[in-house]
Simulated scan of single mutants.
Amino acid sequence: MRQGEISLVGVLALFSIYLMWKSAELPIGYIRGQGPGGGFWPFWLSLGMLLSCVSIAWNWSRGKSPASASDEPLMDAFGWRTVMLVGGGVVGFVALVPIVSMYGAVCLFMLYYLRFLGRHSWPLTLGLALMLPFALFFFFEGAMQISMPQGLPFTQPFFDLMYDIIY
């Protein structure tokens, strides 16, 4: 598991560098009167991913994560359990998008991930699970003008209210 963790971090770091390089072919800064350049979001998100990889590698070198402290050849029981719980949550998230909308699925996934997997307090869990979908809505629908899946008709009152706020 130890070797697998650092190998995956290395692959992700190389992918981050590649994405930064490719996105730098477009303007990565703010263009006066036009907004962010075409490479702005991919570049800065890739930089964030690269910095996360550096942080993971740092913790790996100090043996701070369960995977970096493991001597198992592939994955121990904790690793398999984590893959199943997180992977199952992601599958559930994707399955819920056409039903409860992208934002509803984000809310439910955050509830599951923070409270049940992360064992965080209810105030923190509810705060993040409710605020993140609103922030994502205003970012994608308002700032970027990109519509996300809206789910079944019962979610329409939420979208009507939110569109009234931003338009």
Score class of each variant (00 low, 15 high):
Q34N: 07
E72K: 05
F159V: 00
I17S: 06
A135K: 09
T125L: 03
Q145V: 05
F116A: 05
G127S: 01
Q156V: 07
A143Q: 12
V11S: 06
L47D: 02
Y112M: 04
I146P: 04
Y30D: 11
S7Y: 14
L8I: 15
C53P: 03
G118T: 05
I6L: 11
I28S: 09
C107W: 00
F109R: 00
W58S: 07
R2Y: 13
G88N: 10
L130M: 06
M1R: 09
R115S: 11
R62F: 09
P42W: 09
S23L: 12
G37P: 01
F15Y: 10
L124R: 11
L136F: 07
C53D: 04
L132W: 00
F158I: 00
M148D: 02
I56Q: 06
I99D: 02
M102P: 05
W21T: 06
A67C: 08
G35I: 03
G88Q: 13
G48I: 05
H120R: 11
P98Q: 04
T125G: 03
D160M: 15
S7G: 14
G127V: 02
V83G: 15
A57M: 04
T155Q: 00
R119D: 14
P133S: 08
F158W: 00
Q34M: 05
W21R: 11
F138T: 10
N59V: 14
G39V: 10
S46A: 07
M102T: 06
F154T: 00
G29R: 13
T155W: 00
T155I: 03
M49K: 08
V100S: 01
S16W: 12
R81C: 12
L51C: 11
I6Y: 11
W44S: 00
V54S: 06
A129S: 14
R2A: 09
R119C: 15
G79Q: 08
P157H: 09
M1G: 11
T82K: 11
M102R: 09
S121M: 09
F40H: 09
I165R: 08
S7Q: 13
K22I: 15
L12Q: 12
A24Y: 12
M148K: 03
D71P: 06
M162R: 03
A143W: 08
L124K: 11
S16R: 12
L130K: 02
A24R: 10
V97K: 01
V90N: 14
V83L: 13
A69T: 14
L51N: 12
G37V: 10
M75W: 07
A135S: 07
P73H: 15
E72P: 01
P73E: 13
A69Y: 15
V9E: 10
Y103I: 00
L130V: 01
V83N: 14
M20Q: 14
G142M: 07
W21L: 06
L74W: 15
L114Y: 06
D160N: 14
G151C: 01
F109C: 00
L128G: 02
G142I: 08
W44A: 01
E72G: 08
V9D: 08
T125D: 12
M131A: 15
G151F: 00
G118W: 07
W21Q: 08
F40N: 07
L124F: 07
P149M: 06
S65A: 12
W60P: 05
G92S: 10
V97A: 02
G79S: 12
L96C: 06
G127E: 05
F140T: 09
M144E: 10
S7W: 15
Y113W: 05
I99S: 01
F43D: 01
M75R: 02
P157N: 07
P66R: 04
Y18S: 14
A57D: 02
